[in-house]
Amino acid sequence: MCLAVPMKLVRSEKSIGVVELSGIEREVSLDLVPEAKIGDYLLIHAGFAISIIDEKEAKETIETIREYLSYGEENGVS
């Protein structure tokens, strides 16, 4: 039940935002993330954005994933 989905904020008016994922748009409340900006990826749960996804951290995770891609070869483990 704590499932939350990242969606991109495309429009907003006051505390109501419109978020988008794969062409599907949905209205959400921005009450819990008042600092959200258009273009941010937001984590959506039960009609509310509960967090702004930190792009820098997400990219760092992707970097770590890249490192793991070559892990086996470097360490001689298979």
């Binding site: 990826y41 997400a58 994933i65 891609l69 086996g72």
Partner: peptide, 17 residues
């Protein structure tokens, strides 16, 4: 966008190793 690349089966295999 960038969030697509947050999972990868090959990387998973290597973490399991």
């Amino acid at each position: 966008g960038f969030l697509d690349s947050l999972d990868d089966p090959t990387a998973s295999k290597n973490v399991i190793k």
